[in-house]
Amino acid sequence: MRRAFLRLGSISLLCVLALAACHNKDKDQAAQSGGDTPVEAVQQSVTLLKTGDFAGFWKHALPPADYETLRTDWAKTPPDQPPLTDEDRAEFKEHIKELTEPGAEDKLFAAARPKLIEYQQQYSDQLPLMVGIFQGIARAGIEKSQDMSSTQKKQVSDVLDVLAPWAQQTPWFDQARAKQAIGIVVATARKLDLKSADDMRAMDFDTAMQKYSVGFLGLKELLNVYGLSVDAALDSVKVATVETGPNWARVKIDYTLQGKPITTESVLIQQDGRWYSEDLLRNVHDSHERLMAPPAAGTSAVEAATTPVEAPAKAEAKAPEPKSPKKG
């Protein structure tokens, strides 16, 4: 389930940039499942992510039964996950030592400095072209993805179109920024306090959510060093309901990323009087079904784990296709 969660997490984090504004809520409300309204459901999800509260995010973003399923699935090993080798364990231990030993910041920067000088001389002029090539590859991957809906693909593509120019203009080889970034990475690694590869795989859901929180907050700080503020993007969003139907609603989201305005939409569904993201629910259901599906006759465990499985339809978790708004 860990790989499924990482995939869901990466999708939802990218989509969150295109999904909501940040509004302060008290802790009691943050612990509730779903939102009172479609707009509030989206706003509260972003509030939790902005603070790095992943445990609270999943508890809020999923109906209670799906949340408990997610927690249960967390302890299950994916059929396609290879066992750890002694080489894996040794490599993990060495990387952790490099990042957390006394004086790690100075040692890592001393090793990075000559490379930064070399890369500045060799690649600074080629960087825009290299980023452009990566952008094309990423866009092709988005289009081929089976884990994202068409709405999610558009959201991620719009974000990519803004981030590519930012990446082309960012001074990645600047030594002062690199030293600051290394300090953030080292501080984050120490806070994570990972002991071994085996311990990392054996983490329970609550412990893993705490580690993800530390990593996410460190990542936001790291991006700030290079001029990308996730919080500023979240704070700029305005959400409005544009269409409703029986137990579903479509919301329009306007936000600014790196000074560029972006507009997107999201469909939410209502269950037991609470509102949830349709795309996120579908992704969670699909991942659970893939985890639980038995291998077909003559199919290896790895093949079965990587073959898409259609999740059973759930009437209460499926919104009808929204109609396009009439133009006046």
Rank of each mutant, 00 (worst) to 15 (best):
K238W: 08
A305G: 07
F109P: 15
A311W: 04
D279T: 02
T37Q: 13
M292V: 12
P320R: 04
G227I: 00
A61T: 04
K238P: 07
K179C: 15
D231F: 00
A297D: 09
A317G: 06
K76G: 04
K314I: 14
M209F: 04
F109D: 12
K153Q: 07
E105G: 08
I117H: 11
L129S: 15
C22K: 08
D86W: 08
L6T: 10
K93C: 08
R3K: 06
E265C: 13
L223S: 00
L219I: 00
F205E: 10
I133L: 15
L70K: 08
A297W: 04
I253N: 08
W74F: 14
P38H: 12
Q258S: 00
S266Y: 04
R250C: 15
A232T: 02
S213L: 05
A41E: 12
G183H: 07
A90V: 11
E118K: 09
G218C: 04
A104Q: 09
E316D: 12
R190H: 09
T264R: 08
D86R: 10
A311K: 12
N247R: 14
L49K: 00
G34L: 04
S149E: 01
I137E: 08
T51C: 07
H288N: 08
T244Q: 10
I137Q: 11
E94M: 14
S33C: 13
D73N: 12
K97M: 14
D193L: 07
D161S: 01
E94T: 15
